[in-house]
Structure formats: C-alpha cells, structure tokens
Computed example of a mutant assay.
Amino acid sequence: MRESRVLLPVFGLLGASTAWAADVDLTEFKASSPVPYYAAPSWSVVGSVTPNFTDNALFSRDNRKSDFYYEPDVSIRLDGNLTNDLTYRLYARAQYDAFATEKDGNAAVARMGARLTENWDGWRFSAIYEHRYDFDGVYRDLAFTSDDVMGSVTRDVHVNNVTLSPLLLLTYRFSDLAEARRWRFDAMLGIEVKLDPQWAIVSTPLIEAFWFTDGLNRGRQDQIYSADVGLKYNFASNVSLTTSVLYEARASNVQVRRYRDLRIGPRLDFAF
C-alpha cells in the first residue's frame, strides 16, 4: 500500500477520468414501468459483459497500443416509489477493465449510491449521490475515493419506430485526491430504430466536458466526443446483445491528455 500511496499524485494527474468515459450509461436513466407507490420495493441484478478491441489501450496521445479487454459491469438495485411520481433507487455497482496484454490499462471502480427521480409530464429529473472507490489495476491498489453529487434530466421521445432519449447530466466530484476533484457535464442522445420486435439499430453520441479544480490538475479542461453505431438483438425483454463500433476523441488544454480511440465489440446486457 505504501507504493500505491506514492503513486497517487501521478495517477491523479495522468489518469483521473482517463478511463470510464463510459461509466455514464443511458440505460441507467431509462423510464421504468409505472408502479403504484404503495407497492413493495423490488430487488434486481442488472449488468453487462463487454469483450472489446481497442486501438488505444492506454488512452495515450503518442504511445498507442492495440489490445483486447474484458469489461464486466454489474449492479444490485433496490427500487421503490415514495409517491406515484417520485421513485428512489439504492444500488451497489462494480465495474472493471481487464486487458489481455497491456496490464497498465487495467482499472476498476466500486460504488454505492442513491437516486431520487421525479417524473413530470414525461420528463425525468434525478438527484444522485454516489460514493466510489477507484483502483489502479483490477481491484489491486486503491487509488482514491470520491463522492459524486449529480443532477440529471431526460425523457423518451417516440416517433413511429424511432425512440430518442436525450440526457443532460451535471456532476461535481469531491475526493481525497485533489487531482480528481472536478466538474463534469454530459450531454448524450440515445437513438434506437426498431427493425422488428427483436432487431434494432442503436447509437449514443455524446459530449463530455471536465473542469478540474484542485491540485496538479487545477485549470485543466477536457472535452470528450464520442459516436457509435450498433446492431441490437433482443433475446428477451431482459436480455440483449449489441455489436457496435465506437470512435472517441478527447481534446484538452493539456496536450499530453489528448487522445483518440476506436473500439469494436459485442455487449451482452441483462436484468433479473
């Protein structure tokens, strides 16, 4: 652990938010089926498994290395209603990236959180608190802990066989590592075009902006732009497989933090 503590400032400067651009998942904010507020809370296990190919395993500007990686992402949730329009969620979530060759790219996160969502005229407004642990390696060395306070707004728009799901999300991160403290803004648009009951074309273009506030990262500003397209097959209402191609690029006022990345692979989503 002593070695890990020595590496913390370097990790904060070079890696705080390097990965996990995908840790905001639009499916987390999808509308749920209406449930009477007096109904008992329900437990569920929700997650995904993603084997991917990337041409930039270390999210580097110059030292680009291709590799395959495996990304499981599993949550345990307790969902309930306070009123007909106000819902809550308590959850614990584990997620990691494990690379076949470039082990320096391995990272993991564990988090616990709570969310309140108000449904108003088709819009969903959420307030979220999340306590998280970021690890260097697959749950090897604890890099830093943080507390994220978030607010979001989203809705679903249906036009014939097309569903559009815009989402705006604002986050501030408090952390025991100064370099990890920052504001983050996410704007994304979920697009699903149903071809038939089983098949759909999906895409989730997004823009993320980061403003770091403390430590060696003070004044750093990053922007991440991402676009993807995929083909989704629904095995059942709670199990689906999506094969997609994603391109991502990060701009930054710190030149060494800029990168581009191409990812290709299937994603199996499940909910029980």
Rank of each mutant, 00 (worst) to 15 (best):
R2Y: 11
E3H: 02
V6N: 08
L8M: 15
P9K: 09
P9W: 04
A16P: 00
T18G: 10
D23R: 02
L26N: 08
T27C: 03
T27N: 14
F29P: 10
F29T: 09
S32K: 15
S33K: 13
S33Y: 11
P34N: 03
P34A: 08
P36N: 04
P36F: 07
A39G: 10
A39I: 14
A40G: 12
S42Y: 06
S44V: 00
G47W: 09
P51A: 06
N52L: 11
A57N: 04
F59M: 11
N63E: 08
R64S: 11
K65V: 14
Y70Q: 14
I76K: 02
L78R: 03
D85V: 09
Y88V: 05
R89D: 09
L90V: 07
Y91M: 05
Y91S: 09
Y91W: 13
A94T: 05
T101I: 10
K103M: 07
K103W: 00
D104C: 06
D104Q: 15
N106F: 07
A107V: 14
A110R: 14
R111P: 00
R111M: 06
E118A: 14
W120P: 06
G122E: 11
F125K: 07
E130I: 02
R132S: 12
F135H: 12
F135N: 06
G137F: 00
D141E: 03
S146M: 05
D147G: 05
D148S: 12
D148E: 13
G151S: 14
G151I: 14
N161Y: 13
V162P: 00
T163S: 15
T171F: 00
T171V: 11
Y172L: 02
R173C: 02
R173M: 01
D176M: 01
A178W: 01
E179L: 01
W183Y: 15
A187R: 05
L189W: 12
G190M: 12
E192A: 05
W199P: 08
W199C: 08
I201M: 10
P205S: 03
I207M: 01
A209Q: 12
G215E: 03
G215Q: 07
G219S: 12
I224V: 15
S226V: 04
V229R: 00
L231S: 02
Y233W: 15
N234G: 08
N234H: 13
F235W: 14
A236K: 10
A236M: 13
V239D: 11
T243M: 15
S244L: 15
V245C: 01
L246F: 01
A249F: 02
R250Y: 03
R250H: 12
N253W: 05
Q255I: 04
Q255N: 14
Y259D: 11
D261C: 04
I264E: 09
G265N: 03
G265A: 04
R267E: 14
